[in-house]
Simulated scan of single mutants.
Amino acid sequence: MTYTYLLLAIFLLPEANGLAAKRGIAYNNNNPSGNAVYANLFKGHTKVSWAYDWGYPSWNLDSSFEFVPMLWGLPSGADPDWTAAVQTPGTVNILGFNEPDLTYDASSNIIPEKAAAGYLTYMQPFAGTVRIGSPSVLWNNVGSSSGGSYNTATWTEYFLGNCTGCHLDFAAIHYYQDCVTPDGQNGAVWFEGNVTNAHDVLGLPIWITEFECYGSEQQQIAFLEQALPWLDSQGYVERYAYFGAFPQYLINADGTALSDLGSSYASI
Results as ranks from 00 to 15, higher is better:
Thr2Met: 06
Leu6Gln: 11
Leu6Glu: 13
Leu6Lys: 08
Leu13Gln: 14
Leu13Asn: 06
Glu15His: 07
Leu19Asn: 13
Arg23Glu: 02
Gly24Ala: 12
Tyr27Leu: 03
Asn30Asp: 15
Asn31Ile: 03
Ser33His: 10
Gly34Leu: 08
Ala39Tyr: 02
Gly44Trp: 01
Lys47Ile: 05
Trp54Arg: 02
Gly55Met: 03
Gly55Leu: 03
Tyr56Pro: 08
Pro57His: 05
Asp62Glu: 02
Ser64Tyr: 09
Phe65Gln: 01
Phe67His: 05
Pro69Phe: 01
Leu71Val: 09
Gly73Asn: 11
Leu74Gly: 05
Pro80Ala: 07
Asp81Asn: 13
Ala85Ser: 07
Thr91Val: 15
Thr91Pro: 11
Ile94Lys: 11
Gly96Lys: 05
Gly96His: 10
Pro100Asn: 04
Leu102Val: 05
Tyr104Met: 09
Ala106Lys: 03
Ser108Leu: 02
Ile111Pro: 03
Ala117Arg: 12
Ala117Glu: 15
Gly118Trp: 02
Thr121Cys: 11
Tyr122Asp: 08
Tyr122Trp: 14
Tyr122Ala: 11
Met123Cys: 06
Arg131His: 02
Leu138Gly: 06
Val142Arg: 15
Gly143Cys: 00
Ser146His: 05
Asn151Leu: 00
Ala153Ile: 14
Thr154Trp: 12
Trp155His: 04
Tyr158Gly: 06
Gly161Tyr: 10
Cys163His: 11
Ala171Asn: 13
Ile173Pro: 07
Asp178Lys: 07
Gly184Lys: 08
Ala188Glu: 04
Val189Glu: 14
Glu192Phe: 09
Asn197Tyr: 05
Ala198Lys: 02
His199Asp: 00
His199Met: 04
Asp200Lys: 14
Val201Cys: 08
Leu204Gly: 09
Glu210Met: 05
Glu212Gly: 08
Tyr214Gly: 04
Ser216Val: 08
Gln218Phe: 05
Ile221Arg: 13
Phe223Met: 09
Leu224Tyr: 07
Glu225Ser: 14
Glu225Gly: 07
Leu228Arg: 02
Ser233Cys: 09
Gly235Lys: 13
Tyr242Val: 11
Gly244Asn: 13
Ala245Met: 04
Gln248Trp: 10
Asn252Tyr: 10
Gly255Asn: 10
Gly255Leu: 10
Thr256Ala: 07
